[in-house]
Amino acid sequence: MKKFLNDPFNAVDEMVDGFVAAHSTYVRRLERVRTLVRRDAPVEGKVGLVTGGGSGHKPAFIGYIGKGMLDAVAVGEIFTSPPPNAIYEGARAVDGGRGVLFLLGNYAGDVMNFDMAAELARGEGIEAEQVIATDDAGSAPPDRVSNRRGVVGEFLAWKTCGARAEEGASMEEVKKVATKVNEWTRTIGVALSAPTVPAAGKPTFILAEDEMELGVGHHGEPGVERVKMKTADEVAEDLTARIISDLPYKTGDEVVVLINGLGATPQLELYIIFRKVVEILKAERISIYRSFIGEYFTALEMAGFSVTLMKLDGELKRLLDAPADTPCFVQF
């Protein structure tokens, strides 16, 4: 597969160089580790929000560092959890005296590395807590939610927790928001083609012209089920029905809808999907408070998208609407 790369081994380092040069008003890089932090960190009196994950998911994670969202992001290799020292140094750099909250996705690597980082942080007297995202309904049945992957629902957690932390909330209060978001958010993805990890050199799975991969996550690993190609409306109906019944979302609920492009699906298609989702939710009398359509958490050039619903209450609406200023998300 053709890519614009130099030595694939250095892809992430070079990307970070470019990113920091582009967004130096927002972020700075720590010296000893590959971690980016908010330019003005540590923000005194504020809970520090720390995340990290593999590269290849832009705008996530580093695109969301800034006021009202994330304080520190440890940058891993492509689709690979970052090591504990990168996370720990990030925590140290953004500790404003109210503790640091790790927000991570439910992946074996992340869980272990963040756990080790939390040990390091606590060893240095930094209060470190964590909330693990499990919004991917495609990755385990409803009776095993804690086994599920964390996917683009994390964007909604970063936005709401970032806003809550900015209000000067305590660790407990911010953690409560993260937990509530995770409980009320469900996502399902579908792919038409796999990404190609630069170092691997070829796509991780091959789909025939008439196939889709259902229940796909965002790392290029094969999904749960391979099915025949359908129309946009049919796919939207299928995915939305699965999500609605998963929580379940009920008549009278107010939700946020997030249609997330996984990297190679044009916005044109995302809007066609969203049109159908609007119709379905209207029929269910679930009202849409806000919607986000675009690329929030990609998987390199995976063709596909995910649908996310998050149930709302007054607090989450306020936090969603609060200002944010980051390289990839700005809101007044």
């Binding site: 891993g76 290799e77 959890s81 090591p83 272990m112």
Partner: peptide, 12 residues
């Protein structure tokens, strides 16, 4: 091993 790459193999 722990600090070079991360992933799942680093910690294990």
């Amino acid at each position: 091993l722990i600090s070079a790459v991360g992933g799942a193999m680093g910690p294990l």
